[in-house]
Design a protein around this nucleic acid. Structure first.
Length: 203
DNA sequence: ATCAAGATTACCT
DNA sequence: GGTAATCTTGATA
């Protein structure tokens, strides 16, 4: 197997939140559903840190919903929001930190037919739908079939995992404020790959 | 027990 | 550009 296609090890995730957030750009997220492979390249993320960040779900301490965010890095934090949508986060750092990276957009690679079926309940795919498939945190979970049962999944396992890819050069990374929050709005913790058409919104 | 907010999306003009 | 839909969670207005 090509070295760049190796699964990311625990040691990738247990580092500092903002380092992991930026390095997640360009990595490939894979879901293996009994051999049916769905994958995509991560193109947009946001960082959340409960110790200083009021927008983070861990800001007010541990609850039933956020407890996996306090584990060491490399677990999947899935939450349900607005009555309709699941969002996926990669837990980072050492145990007890309460930090995670929200995956906001991916570029579809394998299993696009399955993603289309999951999102639209049919097989047709026009040009507009192609760019709307996974360009948002809720859309990714819908397309990949990520839901409540994937809460707390170990990303070093075989169901959902990330493949290594070369780092994205700093000049190709756009840094902005985060989207869709009302607290700690000024933290520049949203990162996306410059000019990528699958990013959820331009700044 | 009850309630308001929410790391969104799709559809409207 | 604006907003309704929809329901779980965490705090208690």
């Amino acid at each position: 197997m090509n070295k760049t296609l190796k699964k990311l090890p625990r040691s990738f995730y247990t580092r500092n939140l903002l380092i992991v957030a930026k390095e997640l750009l360009g990595k490939i997220i894979v879901k293996n559903d009994d051999g049916k492979i769905i994958s995509g390249r991560i193109v947009e993320v946001e960082a959340y840190d409960g110790s200083i960040d009021e927008a983070a779900h861990t800001f007010s301490g541990k609850t039933q919903r956020n407890e996996v965010m306090f584990k060491e890095g490399g677990y999947l934090y899935v939450y349900f929001t607005y009555g309709n949508h699941f969002c996926s986060n990669v837990v980072t750092g050492k145990e007890g930190r309460g930090t995670a990276v929200l995956i906001r957009a991916v570029e579809p690679l394998d299993g696009i037919d399955i993603m289309v079926k999951n999102r639209y309940k049919r097989v047709l795919l026009n040009e507009k739908e192609k760019y709307n498939l996974t360009s948002g945190p809720g859309k990714i979970c819908s397309a990949f079939g990520i839901e409540r049962k994937h809460y707390g999944l170990d990303l070093t396992g075989n169901e959902i995992y990330l493949l290594n890819q070369p780092k994205i050069a700093a000049y190709k990374i756009v840094i902005t404020k985060r989207i869709g929050i009302k607290k700690s709005v000024d933290l520049p913790w949203r990162f996306y790959i410059k000019d990528n058409p699958y990013v959820s919104r331009k700044w």
